[in-house]
Design a protein around this nucleic acid. Structure first.
Length: 297
DNA sequence: AACACATACAACCGCCAGTCT
DNA sequence: GAGACTGGCGGTTGTATGTGT
């Protein structure tokens, strides 16, 4: 925090005005709050002047967004929020405003502070404790495989780390979803190599019966819909030559996300629009984890 | 009680992109 | 097209507060 300080600036009428800096007083807060509630948002320079504040517009904007806004949720972050922040940060990096947009009532500044002061240290501690046991310096993790029974057949579900292309895909979707004309119709296509010939009706990961997936909510609203997970599903008997594979799909409500990205080394699908899976070049993926070809239609 | 250190977080700074003149 | 202005963003600073010695 900074001590209040005055700075001489010109206002629009070329009059010298002392602009205050530093901590906001309760009186200043009240002035800004009253003005905003009765007049709404507009040009911040005008707001600062019309509200009778000796502050620059930028300072008023920050104070309103980070502190005075009525829809702000004050107080400590819940464990769910913490989890979501970590998850979103793994996808979006330091794009605090985008992370904040998915946490209703929270500001980018708040999340940034929370990350830098708390989560960063916690993650560091966790990483240190696990890295010693893993002893793995490779930045690209090995695919994680789990076994699932379905339709009387055992399947291996493969989760592969593909963060670079996920980021590209995510940013495409971000751009797309910010465009109101496209947000309701955009589709994600994942290229897939599909030699897996038979449909397994009881396999929760099997998507050969239909690749369409309805989503609820949308990122612009900051709502959290259902959860989709995309991995590779491989029949155990086919693992030997590593050529046979199928894309798999798991739709569960045990986890909530409106994002598309990584969690536990699996690909998570954006919940905002219908999603369609096309083809997935598995060999390419295995050879080069960064080669997944995502495109928004 | 006094001090040192750590933490939380409000606020500023500088940069960038978009818009206006 | 150039420059000024504005809003938005991420990085950083600096102080109030908490905690340990």
């Amino acid at each position: 925090m900074r001590k209040p300080e005055d700075k001489v600036c010109n206002n629009n009428n070329n009059n010298k005005v002392k602009l205050r800096k530093g901590l906001w007083s309760p009186e200043e807060d009240e002035k800004l709050m009253k003005y905003m509630l009765s007049n709404g948002q507009g040009c911040w320079t005008d707001i600062a002047r019309n509200a009778g504040l000796q502050r620059c517009g930028k300072s008023c904007r920050l104070r309103w967004i980070n502190y005075l806004r009525p829809d702000l949720r004050r107080g400590a972050f819940s464990p769910q929020e913490e989890e979501l922040i970590i998850h979103l940060h793994s996808i979006l990096g330091n794009r605090w405003s985008q992370i904040a947009a998915r946490l209703p009532g929270r500001t980018d500044n708040e999340i940034k502070n929370f990350w830098n002061s708390t989560l960063k240290k916690r993650m560091k501690t966790t990483t240190n404790s696990t890295s010693s046991s893993l002893n793995n310096s490779d930045s690209t993790p090995e695919p994680i495989r789990e076994h699932v029974a379905g339709g009387g057949t055992m399947f291996s579900v493969l989760h592969q780390h593909v963060d670079i292309d996920i980021m590209a895909a995510t940013s495409s979707l971000c751009r797309d979803s910010s465009s109101s004309s496209l947000s309701s119709t955009s589709m994600l296509t994942v290229n897939r190599f599909d030699p897996f010939p038979h449909h397994q009706p009881n396999n929760p990961y099997d998507m050969s019966g239909g690749a369409q997936f309805p989503f609820h909510g949308g990122i612009s609203e900051g709502l959290y819909g259902d959860y989709g997970e995309l991995g590779l599903c491989i029949e155990d008997s086919m693992i030997g030559n590593m050529r046979s594979n199928d894309s798999c799909f798991n739709n569960t409500d045990e986890y909530q996300s409106d994002m598309f990205g990584l969690e536990n080394n699996a690909i998570h699908l954006w919940n905002g629009d219908n999603l369609r899976m096309g083809e997935w070049d598995f060999e390419g993926l295995m050879g080069n984890p960064n080669s997944l070809d995502f495109q928004v239609q």
